[in-house]
Amino acid sequence: MTSLIIRAKELLENKTVQVVIGYEAGPTGVARPAFITDPAKAESLIYDERCVQNLAVYLTKREVKNIGKMAIVATLPVMRSIMMLISEQQLFADNIVVLGISADGKLLDIADNKVMQGYIEKSDLSNPEKYKGLLTEFNKLSPEEKFLYWQKELSKCIKCYACRQACPMCYCTRCTVEVNQPQWIPVKANTHGNMEWHILRAMHLAGRCISCGECGRACPVGIPCHLLTMHLTDQVYNYFKVYAGTSEKMSSVLSTYEPNDKESFII
């Protein structure tokens, strides 16, 4: 993508940023994150349908931040992640340059966060089309069927925590599962412990998940754990008419009380 390469080169040459986080093709043809610090190497940047990873996960990573000011190739989920990270005080808006990519793969001119906010607001923020069918099917199941489904799926979990590590919103330096005094969640990867882990993860992301699907994509054993958070995204929207990651001043919907909040769930 020539316009992206030109822009990345320019940002590195005039030292606006010290690193451009984008995608490159690995030796097997898989697209993977690239951290370009040398303008001459900007040529290796790619953007096509293979580039699906949510790169925002690197914005809070110490060794990446150490390089200096960052520019990031940002599709809609990445932009929404950035908004969430700013709103949760994990990122300074002034510290990054956003190389926005439109839904049809064109480089956007995102001059500042106001422009980015405008772009996000006029985009479709509901769950991605490819998962909607599955979510609808899933909602037709009875609670017992749902339980059995997840019991079966989550019994496969090996607790590698790829779902957590791939998620830009899971930035805690010490996750609840790593606390052992008291130990909230069993360490072992049996069905019971796995269910506790995934339910906890989903609940921590309710109202914060920006529906990128990265957790499910990262899972090496193919558990569709993104359906849990995406389902909660639908629930939060139904109750509060809010989607996560739309502005840098957004307060977390489930930890904020508004007098006009629906309370229909209270029996």
């Binding site: 993977r32 994150p33 990573k61 090996i158 790829a162 590590q165 791939a166 090496p220």
Partner: peptide, 10 residues
């Protein structure tokens, strides 16, 4: 060569 490693145990 490890900047992209997200630190999971996969």
């Amino acid at each position: 060569n490890s900047l992209r490693c997200i630190g999971c145990g996969a």
